[in-house]
Each structure stands twice: as structure tokens, then as C-alpha cells.
């Protein structure tokens, strides 16, 4: 078993919190893990990505080969498309549809959504709106993580456990809100997978 995952977003959007949660769940399942992060200049509002590799055997490269990623998980719609050369033919694209606009030539949403919708294997959801409706606007990343969970080959409950572990310091209420956000994303993906 192996899952090669590209996490995508804009510097400051916190894609590493998704990586940390999946990583904790993977370790809890006795899997091997490598995770390449981006630090430095591009963290200042530029495009950022992280290579997360999970396998039941030793992993060689820290970088995922082009054309071999199983999943792109993006917290921003345009950024989800930037890493297509890395995605395999059978790979899934999971993306937030809420744009992060910090450049003057950001493309039109229609054009972006047309590209995303042209993918047979994709889940696109407005994680920010879903999180806001649940009263936890800051948990959009957990909605995205939930939407990606059916494709991770790590059991749903293991991911939920990792979320509890990570947020437990912040109290029961914060844990509950993040689990709610996670579940909402998970249900969305389950009902949109086909």
C-alpha cells in the first residue's frame, strides 16, 4: 500500500496542519511516512505545497515522482491545478472552491471551475462556507481533510482520533467543532464520489 499526496495552498493557509493530522494517523497505523515541507521565502503569500508520502514499506525519496501522486488535496482552487503534472492518471483531486485572491490577475471562477469539473475524479467543495455554517469558520482545513479521508486508505476513525489528539489541549469544545467540520467534509465526499 502507498499513498502519495500533494498538499497545496497559499503561504499562511496552514496546509501543514492537514499534513500533521494525516501524519499522526499514519504513524498510529504503523505506516512509514515522509513529508517534505516548504519553508522560507514562498511562505510569504506565495504558492506552497507539501509532499506527503505514506506506505506500508520503507520510502526512498522525499519527493513524489511526477505522474505518480495518488491525491492532490488543495485548500485553494487555483492551487489545486498547479500540481497536475504530479498526479497519476488514476489520482483524485480534492479541492476547496473558496479562492484566495492576493494577486491582481487572478482568473475568473468560471474558468477555474470549468477546469476542475473537467476532471472525472474530483471533489470540489466550499470548505469555508461549510465551516462557517457549523459556527467554526477557522476549521475549513478540517472540512478539506474530511473530504480527502475516503481516499487516504487510512480508516476514518484513525483520522478522527488524530484530530482529537491534536486539539485536545484546546478543550472539548474545540475538539467537537473540528470533528464536526471533519465529518461534514467526509459526508460531502461520500455523497459526491460517484
Amino acid at each position: 500500500m502507498k499513498r502519495d499526496i500533494i498538499l497545496a495552498g497559499v503561504g499562511g493557509q496552514g496546509i501543514l496542519s492537514i499534513a500533521a493530522t494525516i501524519g499522526m494517523a499514519a504513524l498510529g497505523s504503523g505506516l512509514h511516512l515522509k513529508q517534505a515541507e516548504v519553508h522560507g521565502m514562498s511562505q510569504r503569500g506565495g504558492d506552497v505545497s507539501s509532499n506527503l508520502r505514506i506506505a506500508d514499506h520503507e520510502i526512498a525519496s522525499d519527493l513524489i515522482p511526477f505522474g505518480q501522486a495518488d491525491l492532490i488535496i488543495s485548500v485553494e482552487p487555483m492551487e489545486s491545478l498547479r500540481y497536475l503534472p504530479l498526479l497519476s492518471d488514476s489520482g483524485w483531486l480534492i479541492t476547496n472552491t473558496k479562492p484566495y485572491i492576493n494577486i491582481s490577475n487572478y482568473p475568473s471562477m468560471d474558468a477555474l471551475m470549468k477546469e476542475i469539473d473537467s476532471f472525472e475524479k474530483h471533489i470540489a467543495l466550499n470548505a469555508d462556507d461549510i465551516a462557517k455554517d457549523l459556527g467554526t469558520a477557522r476549521s475549513a482545513n478540517m472540512v478539506i481533510l474530511g473530504a480527502a479521508t475516503p481516499f487516504l486508505e487510512i480508516p476514518h476513525d484513525k483520522i478522527a482520533d488524530a484530530i482529537r489528539q491534536i486539539f485536545t489541549r484546546k478543550g472539548a469544545e474545540v475538539v467537537k467543532l473540528n470533528i464536526d467540520a471533519f465529518e461534514a467534509g467526509y459526508q460531502f465526499a461520500i455523497s459526491h464520489m460517484n
Binding site: 497559499v10 487555483m78 497536475l84 503534472p85 504530479l86 490577475n105 474558468a111 477546469e115
Partner: peptide, 12 residues
């Protein structure tokens, strides 16, 4: 190599 980056994607 997967699909090429669509032209709608601009530099950030």
C-alpha cells in the same frame, strides 16, 4: 508525468 498545468493558472 500527469496532465500539464492548465493555462488558467497564473503565477503567485
Amino acid at each position: 508525468r500527469g496532465k500539464e498545468i492548465p493555462s488558467v493558472v497564473v503565477n503567485r
